[in-house]
């Protein structure tokens, strides 16, 4: 594991293989078929608190660390067009072209309808122990993800704000 950089897990190649998005989509479909949407959301939460625990650790460094993570993350995703804007009270990740949706469409794949919800469930779980929350709007190829301090007055995520993928 990488103990110093923004990404906890590093590869020898700079950018991931896009065909892996086929497997991510297929994994969601398999779990959805076996365990329903609540089971899929549980998978997303548990991967957020388990596999991504080293990301939570980084995010405890504050919103600057959150911004640094997403810049490095999307630089390694094939075909991503993303802007990360950081201010004192918010990190705004503007996904102009979602690399996963783009590649799934190019490959003629049926995209799991609730695919875009995974960004909320995974990231919000990663943020829990770091005092960070995310609110997602848009989806289906482009979205805005706002990372903010996790406060009691923060309105909950409205899932209706996350578009179904097609």
């Amino acid at each position: 594991m990488n103990s110093s950089g923004p990404l906890p897990y590093v590869d020898t190649k700079p950018v991931g293989a896009a065909d892996f998005y086929f497997a991510i989509n297929a994994t969601f479909r398999f779990i959805l078929a076996r365990y329903g949407v609540e089971g899929l959301r549980r998978y997303w939460r548990e991967i957020g608190s388990g596999y991504y625990a080293p990301v939570s650790e980084r995010w405890r460094g504050g919103l600057g660390a959150v911004a640094e993570y997403w810049r490095a993350f999307f630089a390694a995703e094939p075909g991503a067009e993303v802007e990360v804007h950081a201010s004192a009270d918010e990190v705004r990740v503007e996904v102009k072209t979602c690399p996963a949706i783009k590649h799934l469409r190019a490959g003629g794949r049926d995209i799991v309808q609730c695919f875009c919800q995974h960004c909320f469930y995974v990231s919000d779980t990663i943020g829990e122990s770091a005092g960070v929350a995310v609110r997602v709007s848009g989806g289906n190829g482009a979205c805005v993800q706002r990372f903010v301090p996790r406060t009691p007055t923060l309105a909950p995520q409205d899932l209706a704000q996350i578009e179904e993928a097609r």
């Binding site: 897990y9 991931g16 896009a18 998005y21 497997a23 596999y51 390694a76 995703e77 960004c119």
Partner: peptide
């Protein structure tokens, strides 16, 4: 987001 860059890591976790 669950990404392609570290796919093998979360793929193995998923098993």
């Amino acid at each position: 987001m669950i990404g392609a860059y570290d796919f093998c890591g979360h793929y193995e976790w998923t098993f």
